[in-house]
Design a protein around this nucleic acid. Structure first.
Lengths: 259, 259
DNA sequence: TCAGCGGTAG
DNA sequence: CTACCGCTGA
């Protein structure tokens, strides 16, 4: 028996909006720890990892570990039927092949429930090593999103370089080259507006902008984003989910074969 | 001679927006009582009935009953030329074959008039029996609209059931089943937000969501909608038009041929 | 990628 | 009430 009650239902709505373009089908895993998901995108280049810790739910009951395969597009459709300030409850029976999403509006006079068939999916649990990164940058998520969008109008790939000076995003395309540098900046009104560079070793890697733009769909989940880089390791783009966990996107660097 | 002056011209604009997707051509009937219309949709499944009582007009002159056939799409196009707070005057000569719409802006420095040829249409005046309904539900029109829209992302038809508990909307589709229950709720700040159930007998009927979604185009005419159901009778969805009358939509239930 | 609708701001 | 911007759906 599984029963998870999430007061801030719109978190779940946003999470699905953030994932559904990248991943079509995925297994959600429930344990006493929390509600989580790990999935690769269809081209097996990027990976999403979601964690919503049990403590973040108003009520969390998970009698035994359970894996629920769902089509994220369908889940997203269902969640579109939830109001932005609805309370969402997820229910499933052990051994059952369906999951039920229940939405209660704040006035408590409208209750919707949606039952969806589960899918049987191969789980591809990739042990993600908890690596030490050469560089980690925290910056306003909206700024990162804007940069990725802007650069993708010039080129397809971006070189992200971190030095003590700051983080530099460079691209080149038919119409020219572009470089955007964000310097460390901690003298701001609100800590969320800060750009903080933590660097052990300078690093410079190339990524496909297409995926980064997909990742930034999560922007509304958090005012800040954390970008971690190491040579030879996938980039990590992490959005914290208030009091509950995170959504992390991993993306393998491109091997630069020209020049 | 016909001359109707409507100060709140945007009512007429909204009325036409609400009808034009459902009905292509229709006869408008004028009598001393008021300005009315009854028409079936092109597939003869739904019916619209409009009434704007003469008292709602600033000036209402109708020397003799007159029937004016119009293409609602064309009328709607003309009305798009009226400003939202223009005063609209409708004029026609007895025995003439044209109608004139005149728009005056609030500052009274711009006057437009549009003359349109009338059409000769068979009138299909369906005596709508003033039935006693098994159940009548009044609820916020926006909520009804939202429910119909949400459910149509899951399925094509909706089962509407009324019990003492409330009104339930159910659908099923490829991705799963959905149920939305609205409980009676009169403890709200504004009476327009209340959901009021009046039931003599429990009732459960099936309708095509496509039509309901068409009806909800009238949502902006009124904050509340009244839904009346009886087994074997068409559903009625009524939007009151402030101080003037109503627009009512009738829809025959689907006969459930499976199970 | 483009168009239409809804929401927000002036 | 109008105009602009952003988001969603086709």
């Amino acid at each position: 028996m599984l029963e998870l009650r999430l007061v801030q239902g719109n978190l779940l709505k946003k999470v699905l909006e953030a994932m559904k373009d990248l991943v079509t089908d995925a297994n959600f895993d429930c344990s006493v720890t929390g509600f989580s998901l790990q999935a690769m995108d269809s081209s097996h280049v990027a990976l999403v990892a979601l964690l919503l810790r049990s403590e973040g739910f108003e009520h969390y009951r998970c009698d035994r570990n359970i894996t629920m395969g769902m089509n994220l597009n369908n889940v997203s459709k269902l969640l579109k039927c939830a109001g932005n300030d609805d309370i969402i409850t997820i229910k499933a029976d052990d051994g059952g092949d369906t999951v039920t999403f229940m939405f209660e509006n704040p006035k408590q006079d409208k209750i919707s429930d949606f039952e969806m068939k589960l899918m049987d999916l191969d789980s591809e649990h990739l042990g993600i090593p908890d690596a030490e990164y050469h560089a980690t940058v925290r910056m306003p998520s909206l700024e990162f999103s804007r940069i990725c969008k802007d650069l993708s109008s010039i080129g397809d790939t971006v070189v992200i370089s971190v030095t003590k000076e700051g983080i530099k995003f460079s691209t080149r395309g038919d119409i020219g080259n572009a470089n955007i540098v964000c310097r460390q900046n901690t003298t701001v009104d609100k800590p969320e507006q800060a750009t903080v560079i933590q660097m052990n070793e300078a690093v410079s890697l190339t990524f496909a902008l297409r995926y980064l733009n997909s990742f930034t769909k999560a922007t509304s989940l958090s005012e800040t984003v954390t970008i971690s880089l190491s040579s030879e390791l996938p980039l990590v783009v992490e959005y914290k989910i208030a009091d509950m966990g995170y959504i992390k996107f991993y993306l393998a660097p491109k091997i630069e074969d020209d020049e």
